[in-house]
Computed example of a mutant assay.
Amino acid sequence: MRTASWTDSVSVLDRVTAVFDAFGEDDEGLGVSELARRANLPKSTVSRIAADLVAQRFLDRDGELLYLGVRLFELGQTVPQPRMLRRLALPVMRELRDVTGQTVQLAVLDGADVVVVAVLRVPCALELSTRVGGRDRAHATALGKAILAFSTPETVTRVVSGGLTKQTPHTVDEPAVLLRELADIRRRGVAAEHEECTIGVAAAAGALLIPGEAPSAAISVIGPVDALLPDRVTPAVRAAAVTLSRRLAADRAR
Rank of each mutant, 00 (worst) to 15 (best):
T3R: 13
A4P: 09
W6Y: 09
W6F: 09
S11T: 12
V12W: 13
V12Q: 15
R15Q: 13
V16T: 13
F20E: 10
F20T: 06
D21C: 09
D21H: 14
G31S: 12
G31M: 12
E34P: 07
A36M: 07
R37Y: 06
K43T: 13
S44W: 11
V54M: 11
F58G: 10
F58Y: 15
F58K: 08
D62K: 13
G63P: 07
V70K: 15
V70T: 15
L75C: 14
G76A: 15
G76L: 10
M84S: 13
R87W: 07
R87L: 10
L88Q: 05
L90Y: 07
E95Y: 02
G101C: 02
Q105K: 03
L106C: 00
L109A: 03
D110T: 11
V115C: 01
V117C: 01
A118R: 01
L120D: 09
L120Y: 03
V122Q: 15
V122M: 12
L126M: 14
G133L: 11
R135N: 10
A138H: 05
T141N: 02
A142M: 01
L143N: 03
L143Y: 00
G144W: 05
A146P: 04
F150V: 04
S151T: 04
T157L: 08
G163A: 05
G163M: 04
L164F: 05
L164I: 03
T165I: 12
Q167M: 12
T171V: 04
D173G: 15
P175Q: 02
A176Y: 06
R180S: 02
R180A: 10
R187Y: 05
R188L: 12
A192N: 05
E196M: 03
E196S: 04
C197Q: 11
A202R: 04
A204G: 02
G206W: 01
L208P: 00
L208D: 00
P211S: 08
P215G: 06
A217Y: 00
A218R: 00
I219P: 00
S220V: 02
V221P: 01
V225I: 07
L228P: 03
R232M: 07
T234W: 10
P235E: 05
A240W: 01
A240S: 03
V242L: 12
T243P: 02
L244T: 02
S245W: 07
R252A: 13
A253T: 10
